[in-house]
Design a protein around this nucleic acid. Structure first.
Length: 313
DNA sequence: TAGGCCATCTGGTCCT
DNA sequence: AGGACCAGATGGCCTA
């Protein structure tokens, strides 16, 4: 198997300069070393092939084809090998760039889901899961026009997440993580953190119902959106819809419980939402609020002030 | 030290 | 032919 030069292998390290950009000098150096390594590899593969000890690779097959043609055997195969080598190097570079693009997109996603932190990044899979749950929760709010209780909202966010990520999300909201994961039933949430008792936030924009904001938009894939009454007690849970979690089904009670607002005490969703956002910002950059930050019903709120209120009252 | 997460290389497949 | 995409393999880093 090909063993890459040490400096190429080190590009795998998180703090490596290769991680963001490859200086051209380094690229040339690495390329030449890769070429040398590939030379050795291809040479040994040819030797192995002669001994019949190795399955033929693509390069081997191409070389075979060329060799069968006979003409300019040695020179042609060598130039062909050079081209093949170059193609492989370029393909690797493209693949790296492609993956970097994918990672950049994931970073963008991290910034718009709750609990963004530059220092403690969510893993890829957790980011996707949290984003899915977040979209689900927000869609449900739009479709029902009802405000979920904070704990329920966070529980929906944490559905299917790992324990550490659940702790992180809970920590963002100063909730007890145990309450998020140990109680599957909506009714059991009467024992509840003092958090939202302390943070009744009175700046409450009207919550969107089946307004123009969501009309005609396929917010969820189940066709139940058009009927909010149906949504309340028949919605599948977020986990039903995709293979990300291996098709595992979640207890329906969790989802329905989140948004049905069975509890006696009115809860301020906006505090929750702001709190989540506050948390995201306070752990990350305080300067780069994106248009995603608080942008509902065509209104952009003064983020900092609004975000700070719930947690500093 | 095991397991999770990650970046990279690699070869296969599909598409233009 | 060549690029995009994908999944498997591999090895490094980090943490419980």
């Amino acid at each position: 198997m090909l063993t890459l030069p040490l400096d190429v292998q080190s590009s795998n390290q998180y703090n490596s300069p290769f991680r963001t950009s490859w200086p051209s000098q380094l690229v040339r150096s690495v390329k030449s070393e890769i070429c040398e390594a590939l030379d050795d590899t291809l040479k040994s593969r040819r030797e192995d092939r002669e001994r019949g000890e190795q399955e033929k690779t693509m390069e081997d097959r191409e070389v075979d084809v060329l060799e069968k043609r006979g003409a300019h055997k040695k020179k042609l195969s060598q130039s062909r090998l050079d081209r093949i080598r170059l193609r492989r190097i370029e393909a690797n570079a493209r693949e790296r760039n492609r993956m970097h693009g994918l990672n950049n997109a994931l970073d963008s996603l991290r910034k718009v889901v709750p609990c963004y932190s530059k220092t403690q990044k969510l893993s890829k899979i957790e980011t996707l899961r949290l984003a899915k749950n977040y979209i689900w929760a927000l869609s449900e709010i739009l479709s029902t026009g009802k405000r979920p209780e904070l704990l329920m909202f966070v529980q929906t966010l944490c559905k299917g997440l790992s324990q550490p990520t659940t702790n992180l999300v809970a920590g963002c909201l100063q909730l007890n993580a145990h309450s998020l994961i140990s109680e599957p039933s909506a009714e059991s949430f009467s024992v509840y953190t003092a958090y939202h008792h302390h943070h009744h936030h009175h700046h409450e924009p009207e919550v969107v119902g089946s307004s123009s904001a969501c009309r005609g938009r396929p917010l969820r894939p189940y066709g139940s959106l058009s009927d909010p009454n149906k949504v309340l007690y028949s919605s599948p849970s977020p986990d039903c819809s995709n293979s990300l979690d291996g098709g595992r089904l979640s207890p329906p009670i969790s989802f329905n419980g989140v948004f049905s607002l069975k509890h006696e005490e009115p809860v301020d969703y906006w505090s929750c939402h702001y709190a989540l956002r506050y948390c995201s910002i306070s752990q990350g950059s305080t300067t780069d609020l994106s248009p995603y930050d608080i942008h509902l019903r065509g209104q952009v709120y003064q983020a900092h002030e609004e975000l700070n209120k719930p947690l500093h009252d």
